[in-house]
Nucleic acid binder design. Structure first.
Lengths: 259, 259
DNA sequence: CCATCTTTGTGCACGCGTTCACAAAGGCAT
DNA sequence: ATGCCTTTGTGAACGCGTGCACAAAGATGG
């Protein structure tokens, strides 16, 4: 406990706010595009527009990295690309494993965004013995039995979980036990991990539901929303709607009753 | 104050904070699981643990929806499932189109999370004429030419973009022009859309880079980090590192120079 | 060498989100 | 009927993130 952190040091690492870290890849992408067009320098205004953020926010973000940039001119594109790459840790090679080679896992394996930018797919792992050996994206699928040895042999510290929800936690436990400390989870499950392990979640279903919420709101603002009443009398909360008859038959959304 | 919105009403819709909306699908998933196990009621503590959040946060979230829940007992599972489903707009059917049937698009089409919970894949659309008619996930792929008619015929208001980055903005424009007002973007591009259109972005590359940042930080905390120096003398910012020779050769991460 | 003009870097204020802590509310046992 | 015990709902404080607005810094032209 050299550091005074109690148990959640992840909030602000080395003084760089988490929100800023999340935007750095965005800046990096825009800068890389400029670099390919051989643009030497760029102003905060231009770069912010390309990245889709506020220019003041961008300048403040960069200020956390240090004082790169020249007043009256802007930022040197190449130099900034290097600085951000270094800050994000992309100057080193990150071997990753993808577990669960279904439709999604295969798509991820083929995704070009993996190969570039310092990430290298070290292995594709699946629990289905029939998959073992089959080539996907140029790599032979390995069986789950080999998971631990693959991770330790390749020094993998980042794992991608693309398994069904039911297997995700178990896979996660094995990854963590084998030494993985960062996990990108595509399975619709809440993963529990020990301290020191980072988990990021990508959940298609959740994103769609958030869109549906706003979509409904947009639609409801124009038409009358009096139909179902905003506050439909919770009153006797003991009455569990009309769902008494059908209680989650097949994991689908439970039967909803009309008003 | 009917609505004092100047131009960004999306921040807090109907008094429900955006952060809360983003968590509702999480609660709904946990509640659905409880419902399938025929659990009648659940306390905020239990449900929060299942959803991986703080119990106080959960209670405050629910308080925005209304006073469902009984003190001393907890929340009625079925009733809450219904209320959240209604709030998220999942009691109605949302037809969606997926544009770009590559590896990822096909994976999305096969993803079970789409079909359940009120979302229905109305059509799969691809620009490649060779794809047209080929069945993917039980649906024939339609050509991009039909995009507008498909959207208007099916009343589609939610679109999923899974095309390469280069085509994303163009597809987006056509979707919006045809009447789509919510977009889930998987392409690594910043989409510009008119006001009133919601865009949510899922970017695998960005997620990985964020993980890499934390991974690097974790590794650097134990070993000496004095190698490259925390503040490597920006000093003469006019010196654009050693990148003068190689300026972004192939879109890969630029050649990094050692200290 | 100086004036002017552009653009960065940041102090400050504001609003949202999170968390604590507790009073109110309701069930339940006696 | 009454008191106890559990759990909700929320007031209040705090911290993070965002955006404004401006002074400092440096380039550029005369």
């Amino acid at each position: 406990m050299a550091t005074g952190r109690t148990h959640r040091p992840a909030t602000r690492s080395r003084g760089i706010p988490e929100a800023t870290v999340a935007r750095l890849p965005l800046y990096l992408r825009a800068l890389t595009a400029l670099s390919e067009r051989s643009v030497p320098t760029v102003s905060s205004e231009e770069l912010a527009a390309a990245a889709g953020v506020n220019s003041a926010k961008l300048r403040k973000d960069f200020s956390y990295l240090g004082s790169y940039g020249t007043r009256g001119v802007g930022y040197d594109v190449e130099y900034l690309v290097y600085q951000i790459s270094r800050e994000l840790g992309l100057t080193q090679d990150w071997p990753v494993v993808i577990v669960g080679i279904g439709n999604l896992g295969a798509a991820l394996a083929n995704y070009g965004g993996f190969a570039s930018r310092g990430f290298r797919v070290a292995a594709l792992i699946d629990a289905d013995p029939a998959m073992a050996g089959k080539p996907v994206a140029g790599l032979p699928v390995r069986h789950t039995d080999e998971l631990e040895s693959i991770i330790s042999d390749n020094g993998v510290s980042i794992g991608v979980i693309a398994t069904p929800a039911g297997a995700a936690q178990q896979v996660c436990d094995r990854l963590v036990a084998a030494g993985v400390t960062s996990i990108l989870n595509f399975a619709p499950t809440v993963l529990v991990v020990p301290d020191g392990v980072d988990v990021r979640k990508v959940d298609l279903s959740i994103e769609l539901q958030i869109l549906a919420f706003h979509e409904q709101r947009k639609a409801g603002e124009e038409t009358a929303e009096g139909a179902a009443a905003a506050t439909p009398r919770p009153g006797a909360a003991a009455a569990p709607a009309a769902a008494g008859g059908r209680k989650g038959p097949d994991g689908d959304v439970p039967a909803v009753m009309p008003a």
